[in-house]
């Protein structure tokens, strides 16, 4: 099973994903794809160190698929976190 690590950034709450280099970025496609338990354990430990360092919070591994070269979370909830609310933006007053 393919997984990536997600969290929310502490200072603004934004949804972020952990890259192979250990950075936290908004682009889900930049996340490190993890396919082994050992690798996941290491990544979670490193992510938890970032929680302790007050960079991010609510770290969680999420299941993903790779479709047309893009990372797509399996659960709807996580797709909404990755790609934003599904409400029609032209119906959102003030939306740009």
């Amino acid at each position: 099973m393919l997984e990536i690590l997600t969290a929310n950034r502490l200072y603004d709450g934004d949804v972020v994903y952990r890259t192979a280099a250990g950075d936290w970025v908004a682009d889900v496609d930049a996340a490190e794809l993890i396919d082994s338990t050992d690798r996941l354990t290491l990544a979670v430990a490193a992510a938890n160190a970032d929680v302790k360092a007050s960079k991010v919070l609510d770290v969680a591994p999420i299941a993903v698929e790779v479709t047309d070269g893009h990372i797509v979370p399996k659960r709807l909830r996580e797709r909404i976190r990755a790609f934003g609310p599904t409400v029609k933006s032209d119906h959102r007053p003030g939306a740009n």
């Binding site: 200072y11 603004d12 709450g13 934004d14 929680v51 360092a53 007050s54 609510d58 934003g84 609310p85």
Partner: peptide, 28 residues
């Protein structure tokens, strides 16, 4: 203090909630 890492999320959560700050799906 929270942004500086002087208090943990467990310590901070009840304080922010008392001031109406939730953490939702995309943001606070």
């Amino acid at each position: 203090r929270r942004l500086k890492g002087e208090i943990t999320e467990d310590e901070f959560r009840p304080l922010r909630l008392m001031n109406g700050v939730y953490l939702q799906l995309h943001a606070y």
